[in-house]
Design a protein around this nucleic acid. Structure first.
Length: 555
RNA sequence: GCGCUUGUAGCUCAACGGAUAGAGCGCAGCCCUGCGAAGGCUGAGGUUGUGGGUUCGAUUCCCGCCAAGCGCGCCA
């Protein structure tokens, strides 16, 4: 059960009585139910009275009393109180918390899986050009995207995880040119890498591989023909590398969507035609333009280039998103982009609006660029120049879970300075190990408990009255709202925070309360405590699994 | 120059307009003949970049300034 959601509903109901006395219908009420920072302020509290009294010329205390009087007390609340300047504070019932443990253990709560309400949502992330291997900077979007997808699934959405492959356009041509040079230079040529070409080491490796499979075959044909072959082989190999690196990071997709397929299928042309019919397209200087100014932009954008009629990235992206919304019918599309693409958001969403797609169906999460900190300076990652730490290396050195936890615990808009030396050195002190250690510790107790002869009768959860036991039960009861809240706000960084908080409580409990029995009269307490840590282990590992991380039983 | 994002403890980051701004790391001290010390407890450490404004209440919203990152291509 989602406690704060339920409380909010109760408060709304009680509010109607206040309404009859004081409120005009038009008055908008915006209040929250939240967890206070100070224990004395209860387990939950609401500012409803303060919000209602605003502009009403009534004392918040008076409002609060009316609300409290008319409040139907739910079974999970043992006490409600008023506190100046106008807060209503709620205290959870211990008995309810104990009952709640049972439902966690019986999984009768559908603790995370809600019933399907048939909403299709797509999360598109990473979508890096297949022109080089992934590096640290890409890990951030990958981790956020995959976790967000898992999270949305717990809320009953049908989630599609997609990678958009930019396999058309001139970055690909540059890549192919660069690969061609690498290949040719293996045969005693000394060609320079083209200007703005790709200098990454992986191109050398691919060139070597092509050589070992095809020998000098592609040196014997025209450059034009060779490029066609190399492009195909190169893209395939790079995509393969990308896929494998992502799997190592715990990221898997439901679909891989090719940019080229939009051209082939005619959907690109169709999209342009729709825009033409809306009188939003014009020709100038040999190029085809979108009249973005009409849509509210301050400048127009090219759709089809003057040199040879190739579409721009912008143009195919409109077609791609038209495909998402109008062909595949996703209710909502979430794109996770690096912050360097933010200039693209407005013009794309304007174009989508012109296609009749409501604005709120298209959401972009921008994650700020990750920069690399070294002893002397900050280096920007560049795939083109090959100046970055490959994702593969990062995972090998730091580990998948530490890497995921690290990126997940920071909100996307924070600018991360990645210090590889510290990440490597301090890997043992990373909070991820603290959390996993708590899990392993609880498991170890559960394993050991199998050596004891506990009676088969159900445990008496009323015995769980110690402070640290109550605190754990409260934290567990928070889980559904953590999921709902993170999912509504699309904020995955609340999940690692939750695992840390729960782990802290478990470690404290471990110090203060012994679980396994030492003498006969301990057995009943032991049984109830075992249930407590079993439920905790379940929730902890559930959260870790949403975060794409392991829940080790041993470390 | 214009636009977007950010500025919180020594470091990395939290805080749905709420009450005494919190964690991890690092630092100082204490705690294992008892379920895993990868742990627990205690402590030091903050004018939330800065100056105004709105509000019963501002780290949060608005405006100015300072600083950082990104963007302003017929690149993607």
């Amino acid at each position: 059960m989602d406690i704060s959601f339920a409380l909010k509903k109760h408060l709304y109901k009680a509010l109607s009585s206040v309404k009859q006395e004081y409120l005009k219908k038009s008055y908008k009420i915006d209040f929250v139910v939240e967890k206070p920072q100070i224990k004395e302020h209860g387990d939950y509290s609401s500012n409803i009275a303060l919000q209602v009294s605003r502009g009403l010329n009534k004392n918040p205390e008076e409002i609060a009393k009316i609300i409290i009087k008319n409040l139907e007390l739910p079974d999970f609340i043992k006490n409600v109180s008023f506190k100046k300047p106008g807060f209503i504070n709620f205290f959870l019932s211990d008995q309810w918390l104990q009952e709640n443990l049972k439902s966690i253990l019986n999984k009768e709560n559908n603790y995370s899986k809600k019933e399907n309400f048939n909403k299709k949502i797509q999360v598109e992330f990473v979508s890096v050009n297949p022109t080089g291997n992934l590096h640290i900077g890409h890990a951030r979007g990958a981790v956020i995207g995959s976790t967000l997808s898992n999270l949305l699934e717990t809320q009953g959405f049908q989630v599609n995880r997609e990678y958009y492959i930019n396999d058309a356009g001139n970055q690909i041509d540059l890549f192919t040119e660069s690969l061609y040079v690498r290949y040719m230079n293996l045969f005693n040529n000394n060609l320079p890498i083209p200007e703005n070409g790709y200098e990454g080491k992986e191109l050398e490796e691919i060139a070597e591989q092509i050589k070992s499979e095809n020998y000098e075959k592609f040196t014997k044909i025209s450059k034009k023909e060779a490029l066609i072959h190399l492009k195909k082989i190169g893209i395939k190999q790079i995509l393969n590398n990308i896929k494998n690196d992502l799997i190592e990071l715990g990221v898997e997709y439901n679909s891989w969507f090719s940019e080229k397929s939009l051209i082939k299928s005619g959907e690109f042309k169709e999209t342009i035609n729709i825009l033409k019919k809306k009188n939003l397209v014009f020709e100038k200087d040999g190029a085809t333009w979108l009249d973005s100014k009409k849509l509210g932009d301050d400048k127009n954008n090219v759709l089809i280039k003057s040199d040879g009629g190739a579409p721009t990235y912008f143009a195919t992206d409109i077609a791609y998103h038209k495909n998402k919304f109008l062909t595949r019918n996703f209710d909502t599309v979430i794109d996770i982009w690096g912050a360097d693409h933010h200039g693209h958001i407005k013009r794309l969403s304007d174009a989508l609006k012109a296609l009749g797609i409501e604005k709120n169906r298209f959401v972009v999460i921008l994650n700020q660029i990750v920069s690399l900190k070294t002893k002397s300076s900050m280096t920007k990652f560049s795939k083109r120049k090959g100046t970055s730490i490959p994702l593969k290396e990062l995972i090998e050195e730091v580990g998948k879970d530490a890497c995921r936890y690290n990126f997940l615990s920071k909100s996307p808009e924070s600018q991360i300075e990645f210090d590889l030396d510290i990440s490597k050195k301090k890997s043992n002190e990373n909070p991820v190990f603290y959390v996993q250690y708590a899990h392993a510790r609880m498991n170890s107790i559960i394993e050991k408990s199998k050596n004891f002869n506990f009676s088969k009768s159900t445990s008496n959860l009323k015995l769980l009255t110690h402070d640290s036991e109550i605190e754990i039960m409260k934290k567990l009861s928070e889980f559904p709202e953590i999921l709902r809240f993170s999912s509504e706000k699309l904020e995955v960084h609340r999940l690692p925070q939750y695992t840390l908080e729960l782990s802290q409580l478990l470690q404290k409990f471990y110090e203060e309360c012994r679980v396994l029995p030492e003498k006969q009269e301990d057995y009943e307490t032991s049984k109830s405590r075992l249930d407590l840590i079993k439920a905790s282990k379940l929730i902890l590992s559930e959260t870790l699994s949403i975060m794409g991380m392991e829940s080790p039983n041993k470390m």
